[in-house]
Amino acid sequence: MKNLLRIALLAAAAALAGCAVAPDKPQRATQYDFGPGPAVALAAAAPAGSQAPIALSDIDANSALDGTPLLYRLGYADDHQVRPYAHARWSAPVPQLIRQRLRERLAQERPVLDLGDSSGLARSRGTLPRTLRLQLEEFSQVFGSPAQSEGLLRLRATLTDNMPAGERLLAQRSVVVRRPAPTPDAAGGVRALAAAVDAASEEIAQWLRQQP
């Protein structure tokens, strides 16, 4: 009986010691995207009278923006330094998320093709669609004070015509959108940046309609 009691006490002490030295489990980063978008069913093909087809290229971005970190700047301290949230990330690289959201918006009124798909359309209609190229220049949550921030999106849109000799520049536009964050944290930054992307997509759609 004494031996059994001694073994039980040793086992309990070992268990307590193990609990004391066991490291905490690493906290997994919360993943975000831009939300489900408008609850509108898009037709597989654009209806008659819609806008002309367009080829949408991949979005170019520098190495800081071409990834999944959710970035912020402390404008009241040093707005030249971009910082990533430790426990918040995008569900996919930022250029992919923005391109998908823009594609959904443009597809509401015109066929949107990848660059590799445009050759098939050319064979069927005898001409290549125009190409929309985008350069992402800024995509971050900017804090004006510890309690106030906004989502800042800045990109450059370039529209080109596909000619036998190559692409010809038709128009170019800088798009800058700021949207206030509802809360001064990662979740608030996500909502502000998602709203900025939707506003930029609408602006680009309107700009494309104005092109002759």
Results as ranks from 00 to 15, higher is better:
Pro182Thr: 01
Met163Ser: 13
Ile59Val: 08
Gly37His: 08
Cys19Ala: 07
Pro164Ala: 02
Leu42Gln: 12
Gln172Trp: 10
Glu104Lys: 13
Ala165Pro: 04
Val112Lys: 11
Thr183Ala: 14
Leu42Trp: 03
Leu70Val: 09
Pro164Val: 10
Ala12His: 05
Asp60Lys: 03
Ala92Cys: 09
Leu115Ile: 15
Gly189Met: 09
Ala52Asn: 11
Glu150Ala: 00
Leu56Phe: 11
Pro184Gly: 08
Thr68Lys: 12
Pro182His: 05
Ala22Asn: 09
Asp198Arg: 11
Gln135Trp: 08
Thr158Ser: 05
Asp185Lys: 07
Leu16Lys: 01
Arg191Tyr: 12
Ser174Gln: 15
Asp198Val: 04
Gln135Arg: 12
Leu113Phe: 15
Asn3Ile: 10
Leu5Gly: 02
Pro129His: 01
Leu128Thr: 12
Gln135Ser: 13
Leu170Lys: 01
Phe143Asn: 11
Thr183Leu: 14
Gly151Asn: 08
Gly188Trp: 05
Ala122Asp: 12
Asp114Leu: 15
Asp66Phe: 01
Ala14Gly: 13
Gln27Tyr: 01
Ala61Ser: 02
Tyr72Leu: 07
Leu74Asp: 12
Gly188Thr: 04
Thr68Asp: 10
Glu167Gln: 12
Glu150Asp: 00
Asp185Met: 11
Val197Ala: 14
Ala88Lys: 04
Cys19Asn: 10
Pro38His: 02
Tyr76Trp: 06
Pro95Ser: 04
Ala200Lys: 09
Asp33His: 11
Val197Asp: 11
Val176Asp: 14
Gln135Gly: 12
Ala187Ile: 09
Arg133Gly: 14
His87Lys: 05
Trp90His: 05
Ala165Tyr: 07
Leu70Ile: 06
Leu10Phe: 10
